[in-house]
Amino acid sequence: MKKPSFTTLMLIAGLLFLYLPMAILMFYSFNSSRLVTVWAGFSGRWYIELFRDRQILGAVWTSLRIAFFSATMAVCLGTMAAFVMTRFTRFRGKTALSSMVTAPLVMPEVITGLSLLLLFVHMAQMIGWPTDRGMVTIWIAHTTFCSAYVAVVVASRLREVDLSIEEAALDLGSPPLKTFFQITLPMIAPALAAGWLLAFTLSLDDLVIASFVSGPGASTLPMVVFSSVRMGVSPKINALATLIILTVSLATFLAWYFMRRSENKRRMAMAQQDAH
């Protein structure tokens, strides 16, 4: 057998480094002891307690709703921005728009959170809205930073797709909007789905920005988890973490499986064409 190279060994070690802590977390979620680090036998009691915790369940529901609406709005805004960046000729403000679109990608969260909260406070003083902060203000904040990620994902796809099909449609007299919905949209649909999923997970995951712009009314899941883990390690959070990791892994596996299947199909179709 060939001796594995240094980089291959590093890759294996790096993946172990990434996955071991999560595996340990999942393992200890089945521990019957309250002390998380002492193994006292297999038990599923923390899962039962988790599903009895109304505060956590409520926060899950709040977070899921915010994430759904943020991701949906972010896909609309991000796709528009990506379209402007890739398909439109120069116009005044294009550079400004492009840099504003990608700026939230690397902005420290405390700055984004603070600045948005101050904006909402000002708006409340000047136009009387928003009277109280909660889901709507979190939705606005999440939409803003998520659309940056969507724009980058969609723009890279828009650059790949063949322009000539769109051009042909336009040359044959199809109106731009119709061309977009009938030609461009189906071609970039996978990128839209990827962007939506990315925005959804980003919104579900955000703690800092939500803590700034939320009011007393709305607590998202990360906010509840954070206030709990601040006090120390808790087996209920381990159970929750296990469920989150399993869900994300399953979704990723399904995405990979369908990507591979469509890739195989395409390859087979191409092979058949070559045979003819």
């Binding site: 790096g14 993946l15 990434l18 996955y19 802590p21 999560m22 340990i24 977390l25 200890y28 998380v36 680090t37 990315l198 997970t201 579900l204 995951d205 703690l207 990360p222 988890v225 954070f226 883990v229 120390g232 390690v233 959070i237 929750l240 973490a241 989150i244 990791i245 994300v248 892994s249 990723t252």
Partner: peptide, 19 residues
């Protein structure tokens, strides 16, 4: 495999090290 952890939960991955 490399990206999957970043899609789970930032907070929980930091929390994992506490234990």
């Amino acid at each position: 495999l490399v990206m999957l952890p970043s899609w789970t939960s930032f907070l929980i991955r930091v929390y994992a090290w506490m234990g």
